[in-house]
């Protein structure tokens, strides 16, 4: 059975592919790392009442290693894929935020420089001081 996948695109400059690695533990759980209440909230005593249910076991599973239904496997794989997408887009958001912050900072710096320049160019009466001394 194939696994879920995703492709992110932004214009012609960026394309990112998301694939599931079925041997990686992050694709073998229904509890995502980027969904649900934060650690801070859980540590404060909050109970996660919306916690995803555990994957469904195949009937008559008696072996020590559990076998899950195909749709449970899909749900676990999709959970890991969702985390991958969320982490990637959050990083992109941070980059955009830093760029915006730098632009604002550069604009502010330029504004201050302009103001200083205007103030310095406005005081152009050095000769009057010399005449007073004489």
């Amino acid at each position: 059975m194939t696994t879920p996948s995703a492709i992110y695109k932004h214009g012609d400059e960026l394309e990112k592919h998301f694939q599931v690695d079925i041997n990686n533990a992050r694709y073998k759980t229904t509890n995502g790392s980027t969904t649900g209440p934060s650690e801070h909230v859980l540590n404060a005593g909050q109970i996660d009442r919306d916690r995803p249910s555990d994957p469904k076991l195949l009937d008559n599973t008696e072996s020590s290693s559990p076998s899950y239904t195909p749709l449970s496997l899909l749900r676990m794989q999709l959970t890991g894929l969702q985390d991958d997408i969320n982490i990637f887009l959050t990083e992109r958001m941070e980059v955009a935020k830093m760029k915006k912050s730098k632009l604002a900072s550069d604009a502010e710096e330029k504004r201050i420089e302009e103001e200083i320049k205007v103030l310095l160019d406005g005081g152009d009466d050095d000769n009057s001081e010399t005449e007073n001394e004489q």
């Binding site: 980027t34 969904t35 997408i85 969320n86 887009l89 955009a96």
Partner: peptide, 22 residues
């Protein structure tokens, strides 16, 4: 329109799809 909107929308829809699968 931007990555923030995409993140919120995509994650929400995937949550719905997981519920459907279950």
């Amino acid at each position: 329109i931007d990555d923030r909107v995409l993140r919120v929308g995509v994650s929400s829809v995937i949550d719905s799809i997981k519920t459907i699968i279950e």
